[in-house]
């Protein structure tokens, strides 16, 4: 589905932010990307989304090089208050991208209604985004992405601006989306627990310039739960390992091997 080859990017004459990134995401996979702050996570993501042309390397989506924003891709940004349009109702925000899909008025309305329902906001359609809480606004942004029916969804620290309880709810919402839609999802986060909890794989980036430091499979069953999953030894072990990698310590050698 997605292949990133030797991706390098520098802003102007400054030293590069990311260097020689290689990664591959298979269809239906949810890959989390974590790294210390300033490791170029967002730059990587913007290159993948086609919002920025990298200075080196290339990005292939379905085998085709990405030179502009691909049509089968959607992005959920961290800052929902800016990425939702305050002058449109929630319903219109969700329905707006569907105009480009050539859908009629009634179809748009139905699709946006369904998407809102699937994020638990069936009744909020007539409201304006700024009348909702932060977590609800991010749900609207997710609904907008879902209604667009992309094959590939990019999320840039989507739960970075909400409180802890809401964050867990939204993580579970994401897991449900992952299960229901079969979308391929690339999630950038700085939260180590989150990267393990929602991901099929966790990719750890190193401190600047960002390089791929590790690519770890998450060996947890698909059905996950905020309490029990986090108790599992695999979870505890993996989050510790990711934590060490993010902080820049080598994982101490396993005494058994």
């Amino acid at each position: 589905m997605l292949e990133v080859e030797n991706l390098t990017h520098a802003y102007g004459d400054a030293p590069p932010v990311i260097v020689g990134i290689d990664l591959e995401v298979k269809p239906g996979e949810l890959v989390s990307i974590v790294g210390p702050s300033g490791c170029g996570k967002s730059t990587l993501l913007r290159c993948v989304a086609g919002l920025q042309s990298p200075t080196g390397g290339r990005v292939l989506l379905d085998g085709k090089p990405v030179d502009k924003v691909p049509g089968n891709l959607a992005v959920v940004f961290q800052d929902y208050s800016r990425s939702l349009f305050p002058w449109m109702s929630v319903r219109d925000n969700v329905a707006l991208p569907l105009r480009r899909r050539g859908l009629g008025r009634a179809e748009r309305r139905e699709a946006s209604g369904k998407a809102l329902e699937s994020v638990g906001l069936a009744d909020a359609g007539a409201k304006y985004p700024w009348q909702l809480s932060g977590g609800m606004q991010q749900r609207v942004a997710i609904a907008r992405a879902l209604a667009y029916r992309p094959e590939f969804l990019i999320m840039d620290e989507p739960f970075g601006s909400v409180d802890a309880q809401t964050r867990e709810d939204l993580e579970d919402l994401l897991l449900r989306v992952r299960g229901d839609s079969g979308m391929t999802i690339l999630l950038v986060t700085h939260d180590i627990d989150e990267s393990v909890y929602v991901g099929h794989r966790v990719i750890v980036l190193s401190r600047s310039p960002g390089r791929v430091r590790a690519d770890l499979p998450v060996g947890l069953p698909s059905a996950r739960d905020q309490i029990t999953t986090r108790e599992r030894p695999e979870f505890v072990h993996l989050r510790a390992e990711v934590g060490r990698l993010v902080r820049g310590h080598e994982t101490p050698a396993d005494p058994a091997s």
Partner: peptide, 24 residues
Amino acid sequence: LQLQTARVFDITGAQRLRRIILPA
């Protein structure tokens, strides 16, 4: 970010002017 959102969802040309830039 509003302009980037428009780009992601392929809202361009007259649509972009009418629905994003002018209201903003």
